[in-house]
Amino acid sequence: MSKIKDYKELIRELAELLDKSTLSEIEVEEEDFRIRVAREVPNNVSYNAAAPTIAQAPASTAAPVSAAAAPAQTASPAEHPGAVPAPMVGTTYTAPSPGADPFIKVGDTVKEGETLLIIEAMKVMNQIAAPKSGKVKEIFFADAQPVEFGETLCIIE
């Protein structure tokens, strides 16, 4: 019976940690048990590189970072044929090290396979490569911002 009390206390502690952070889930696994505490993240949460705070607005009204004033968009950035989705959940880094120049900027021309950003997941730095060659039209992430799986990182045309 004391194990159940211990599990309940662990779940409470994990839930409090989840509430006090920007994480969407926490999982603890030991020999013969696994506990996962998660919260639902609304689909309309977007990250704007111009303001490194979470903007609670529908994606269609989020202000993209672009070289010129963007025309009114009728479709979400994820529906754009040049959209680059996040392949994992993690924290984005725009440069290879603090103070270094960013991998990409709006207007840059990139080649397929070139590093666009780094996503840190579980203390592993994952270089995210350009899926195709083209010009960076918009960037939807900022340095040290969390991203969810499938969230649009940038648009390459």
Score class of each variant (00 low, 15 high):
residue 1 M to W: 07
residue 2 S to Q: 12
residue 3 K to F: 13
residue 4 I to G: 04
residue 10 L to Q: 09
residue 14 L to Y: 06
residue 16 E to T: 07
residue 18 L to H: 11
residue 19 D to I: 07
residue 19 D to Q: 14
residue 21 S to F: 12
residue 22 T to E: 15
residue 22 T to S: 13
residue 26 I to V: 14
residue 27 E to W: 03
residue 28 V to E: 09
residue 33 F to D: 07
residue 34 R to D: 07
residue 35 I to T: 08
residue 37 V to M: 06
residue 42 P to W: 12
residue 48 N to I: 10
residue 52 P to V: 02
residue 52 P to N: 12
residue 53 T to C: 07
residue 55 A to N: 13
residue 55 A to K: 12
residue 62 A to G: 10
residue 63 A to M: 13
residue 71 P to A: 01
residue 71 P to Q: 02
residue 73 Q to R: 14
residue 84 V to G: 01
residue 87 P to Q: 03
residue 88 M to Y: 10
residue 88 M to A: 11
residue 90 G to V: 05
residue 91 T to R: 10
residue 91 T to F: 05
residue 96 P to Y: 00
residue 97 S to I: 01
residue 99 G to H: 07
residue 100 A to R: 05
residue 102 P to W: 07
residue 106 V to R: 01
residue 108 D to V: 12
residue 109 T to P: 01
residue 112 E to I: 04
residue 113 G to D: 11
residue 114 E to Q: 15
residue 116 L to I: 10
residue 119 I to S: 00
residue 125 M to G: 07
residue 126 N to D: 09
residue 128 I to S: 01
residue 130 A to T: 06
residue 131 P to F: 11
residue 132 K to S: 09
residue 134 G to Y: 06
residue 136 V to K: 02
residue 137 K to P: 00
residue 140 F to L: 10
residue 141 F to N: 04
residue 142 A to V: 05
residue 143 D to S: 05
residue 144 A to M: 12
residue 148 E to V: 08
residue 148 E to G: 06
residue 152 T to E: 01
residue 154 C to T: 05
residue 155 I to F: 07
residue 156 I to K: 00
